[in-house]
Simulated assay, not measured.
Amino acid sequence: MFSRHTGRRGRLFGAAALTMAAGLVLAGCAGGETETPGDNGAAPAPDNGGDSNFSITFLPKNLGNPYFDTSNAGGAEAIAEFGGSFQEVGPTEASPTSQVSFIQTAAQQGVDALVVSANDPAAICDALDEARSVDVKVVTFDSDTNAECRDLFINQAEAEGIARVQVEMIADQIGGEGQIAILSAAANATNQNAWIELMQEELAANWPDIELVDVVYGDDDDQTSFDRTAALLQTYPELKGIVSPTTVGIAAAARYIQTSQFQGQVAVTGLGTPNQMREYVEDGTVGAFALWNPADLGYLAAYAAKALVEGTITGAEGDTFDAGRLGSYTVGANGTVLLGDPFVFNADNIADFNF
């Protein structure tokens, strides 16, 4: 799963990330189905001559999630640039089948493309196959389906790199020894499970003095993740660190540690966004965490969808397409496009980022 990214490489968190703040008006989603118009005629026409008039629907794992608020805002930015129509729909809870009805509705509406972060690799495949049978292009991002169910997968970074950086961060923060636990999202989340398996391999190969005592699931829900953190600390009194490869989980774990007797005693790291993690880094609750730029991930996914709808690419290995301000990308094996490498945030650099 490799693809070369050529052109202006927009190294994850450049100035482009800062352009997304205005896009966060897309959030505001609490109820069941939500649609957020993008370029629906109210906004000025793009200056770059974009006149694609494609309808592209973003379907995240769940609404009200800061990570997906940011990634979907990136998609809206790209779609506005090339003159398409943007919608955001989705469930309020990230359960395996909760996305099915939204896929079916989008296909019935005749959208040109769906951009989906899958809650389960197989549970939505039948619905996606039905959509593709009526010529809806399907791009997955962040969390993939089975490869045969989509046209392209926009991968935030290579799974090995994501796993390795999280292990290295926790190892550094606990001095390379002691008990750790993993606080994941949903038990069926494709990306989470791939990273956890690789983290286990990395620990076994290179960190023999670190013991992974448990993997628990917060279902990408703040309160559930908070409660799972409390339970871990009660169950494992010798626990020295928690790794949470989910933006909801890491913030909930940090919030629990911040106001408990464990602050300064139990390390928390994983994947988060600068704005949600800033206070925990600044007060020393969290020493470091990592992520890619979710705004760029959504932006890239939108341009990939455009290229598929236009017929510029088919999703075959070696296809190339333009991704606006991010430059040119090449499709790798298994219809995968790679955004870039993870970036580590800490007290020295977190003030430079705002998303």
Results as ranks from 00 to 15, higher is better:
M1F: 07
G7A: 06
R11P: 12
L12Y: 07
L12G: 08
A16Y: 13
A17T: 11
L18W: 08
T19P: 04
L24N: 09
L26I: 12
A27T: 14
C29D: 11
E35S: 11
G41W: 08
G41F: 10
P44W: 14
G50I: 08
D51P: 00
N53R: 10
N53S: 08
L59F: 00
N62R: 05
L63W: 00
P66Y: 02
Y67W: 14
F68S: 04
S71N: 06
A73H: 05
A76V: 03
E81N: 07
Q87S: 14
E93D: 14
A94W: 11
P96T: 10
T97Y: 10
Q99N: 03
V100Y: 06
V100F: 09
Q104E: 15
T105R: 13
Q108N: 14
Q108S: 11
Q109R: 11
D112A: 02
L114I: 13
V116G: 00
N119E: 05
A123E: 13
C125W: 11
R132E: 06
R132A: 11
R132S: 09
V134G: 01
V134W: 03
T140W: 00
T145P: 01
A147I: 12
R150Q: 07
A157Y: 13
E160C: 00
I162E: 15
A163L: 07
A163C: 06
R164I: 08
R164V: 13
R164C: 00
R164Y: 10
V165D: 05
I170H: 07
I174V: 15
G175P: 05
G176P: 03
G178N: 02
I180T: 08
A181P: 01
S184K: 02
S184I: 02
S184Q: 06
A186P: 07
N191E: 09
M199C: 02
E201C: 00
N206Q: 10
D221G: 00
D222V: 12
S225G: 06
D227S: 06
L232C: 02
L233M: 12
L239V: 05
I242Y: 04
I242K: 01
P245Q: 04
I257M: 05
Q263H: 12
G264T: 05
G264C: 04
L271S: 11
T273I: 15
P274A: 10
E279C: 00
D283F: 06
G284I: 14
T285A: 03
V286Q: 01
L291E: 14
L291D: 15
N293E: 15
N293R: 03
A295D: 13
A295M: 09
A301N: 06
A302V: 08
A305I: 07
K306N: 14
K306A: 07
A307I: 13
G311S: 03
T312D: 15
T314F: 01
A316D: 15
D319M: 02
F321A: 05
F321H: 04
G324P: 02
Y329M: 09
L338V: 15
P342I: 13
I350S: 06
D352T: 10
D352I: 08
F355W: 12
